[in-house]
Nucleic acid binder design. Structure first.
Lengths: 342, 342
DNA sequence: GCAAAATGCGCAATCGATTGCATTTTTATT
DNA sequence: AATAAAAATGCAATCGATTGCGCATTTTGC
């Protein structure tokens, strides 16, 4: 143990009086090397505790075997589920995943994406930040022909693989469900409209109203960033109307919960007085009381699919892109089940 | 645009009829290069859309600027919080994070750790898998002097930085709290005892009993892997005793919830008939009904701290290790507040 | 005006693994 | 035994950035 650094193929070669090429080939099971030599080499490699230096290999092969994943916030159930699913598939396929969070900040996202490019990720899976309004940092990936997959929040103007949930159908289904439950004045708490996801949810809401011949009332739609606090202030605003709603389709479960708690504290019964539906099926929505009706978004599955798509882009030359729309599932729970009280 | 590959410092050098060395130094703001040349070089680099190839740089510098993080499951609130906190600190310090999940499987953990080593991560942050019983794959890191930080689930026999929550105090506090609330027969639903965290929680439980002169009853302690289902079967087992408990200290919130739902469905009132306390402060524990008393584990902060520790190890030569014990906080909620009903 | 010092830049090796082509060794054939 | 054919291995360049050392050129001091 004279050397303090890691053994390399050259060390193994010296040990056996052969060339580094042969060692390299042997360790990669190249058929050009005889079985006998291979075994000798592998034995010595083991004995020396040799572990290939992936950095060197990556440089030479111009391939990092790494997939970058960028999400707004790692610490959010939906996103961590996606990451979990993607890591699962990627690891099995021999890829590492490097992960960064944009905190929904455009600047940080640009920073991250450039850093990932410098690290020569083989592909990038991204759900863009709420704040992001320009997309040059992502277009570069397409221009340089580096695999790119959007999930959840995609950029319409960039043509590449996308995997989203059917937000339109989700919004429609929620609204139709509320109508079916006998609610008449249905409000919608919407997210930033420059994100397709929120835009489509609202579109679904509007479409359901139209299909049911319900007059759209602009004062019943509030757009904000869907934080817990904003859920409360939105509901306050809604309840202050001359003609307040009797149901609220919340853009996510967080606002659904905060709205529900606010209303409960005001003595308003849910679902009898007001029906509530959320979106995303956060773990808590099932266990709170009353449990919150919501739309399930298959995060884990989405991550798996995103990884499959990016690996397909990486490993094949074909450049035919698809947009996969995962079906949404309406989960009816207590917060909107008024019929059962009649 | 004849080249389809990325511009390198050599391309910039050729363009300006200077050497690559100068370009490299200029881009790194080396004082040996004149300001005028630097500006020229940077201008050309910008114009060519040059982005340094980190792979090459890493190889030469024998430093990957990458921190590996291994957790049992990404998609778990506590762990994703830790990852989030670590990524935050790491990114600001110029490090990337690669993340993998062991799924609590020893084999996969070994596999991951070796792969991270091959990728020459500058340091490894890990919470070991429940299943892991041998630690050679981690000892290697210490032997090779590669920074290693344990969080949450540490290996006692490996000397390095560790950051854990005060599980003993947490277990003690929970138990004392239940005693203070007037519960007499307190059961404990414990996790695998080869993990310090669960071992210490139980030790705190036992210590609190002793301090209060309460006879320890072995039949009141059940050890399993703390899944939702096992929470139910454990409670079934407890309630089948001749002398069932009137309080349960659950090793995590998941089992606390499943136990609670099971008991509620059996018509048992919580906290009046049976008190329940969980551990970890999962998001849902606050919003379920009754809300679950629990121990807060500062995941995000733990991740930040872990990243700080590993970066300190990476960037300084000193090798004095510390074990940081983050304080636990008992959050008293409805599920154990019997006093308010008396 | 001239040596000494400072400044600016280039050469070439290096990091560790890979690979096209060349060379050596082994095997088969007559 | 000689030669062709096949098999096994080695040489050296390459991936792109970094850096010790050395060589010019300019500046400084007296």
């Amino acid at each position: 143990m004279i050397k303090n650094s890691e053994p390399t193929i050259h060390d193994i070669a010296r040990e056996l009086n052969i060339s580094a090429s042969t060692v390299s080939r042997a360790l990669n099971d190249n058929p050009r090397i005889s079985l006998k030599t291979k075994e000798k080499i592998k034995a010595v490699a083991d004995a020396m505790g040799y572990r290939p230096n992936t950095l060197a290999s990556n440089l030479r092969n111009k391939k990092s075997n790494t997939i970058g994943i960028v999400v707004p916030l790692i610490n959010r159930h939906f996103f961590s589920s996606v990451i979990s699913g993607a890591e699962d598939v990627a690891f099995k396929a021999g890829y590492n995943v490097v992960i960064s969070q944009s905190n929904d900040l455009a600047d940080k996202e640009i920073n991250i994406v450039q850093s990932m490019f410098s690290n020569r990720v083989d592909g990038l899976i991204i759900s863009i930040a709420m704040q992001t309004k320009t997309f040059d940092h992502l277009k570069i990936f397409r221009k340089k022909n580096i695999p790119l997959v959007f999930f959840d929040r995609a950029v319409p103007e960039i043509e590449t693989d996308k995997i989203v949930v059917d937000d339109f159908a989700g919004g429609f289904r929620v609204t139709q469900h509320l109508i079916d439950q006998g609610y008449k004045r249905i409000a919608h708490l919407a997210g930033t409209q420059n994100l397709m996801a929120y835009f489509d949810r609202k579109k679904g809401y509007l479409d359901a109203l139209r299909k049911n011949n319900i007059q759209f009332d602009e004062s019943l739609v509030i757009i904000n960033t869907l934080t817990s606090d904003e859920g409360v202030s939105a509901v306050q605003q809604l309840m202050a109307l001359k003609n307040p709603p009797d149901a609220i389709f919340c853009g996510n479960d967080t606002t659904a919960l905060s709205a529900m708690i606010f209303l409960r504290d005001k003595g308003i019964r849910i679902p009898q007085d007001i029906g509530i539906v959320g979106f995303s099926n956060e773990p808590f929505s099932k266990v709170v009381s009353p449990s919150i009706s919501t739309i399930a978004q298959p995060g884990f599955q989405m991550g798996q699919k995103a990884a499959e798509l990016i690996i397909r882009q990486i490993e094949t030359k074909e450049r035919t892109y698809q947009t996969i729309v995962l079906p949404t599932e309406l989960i009816v729970r207590e917060s909107s089940s008024r019929r059962s009280f009649q």
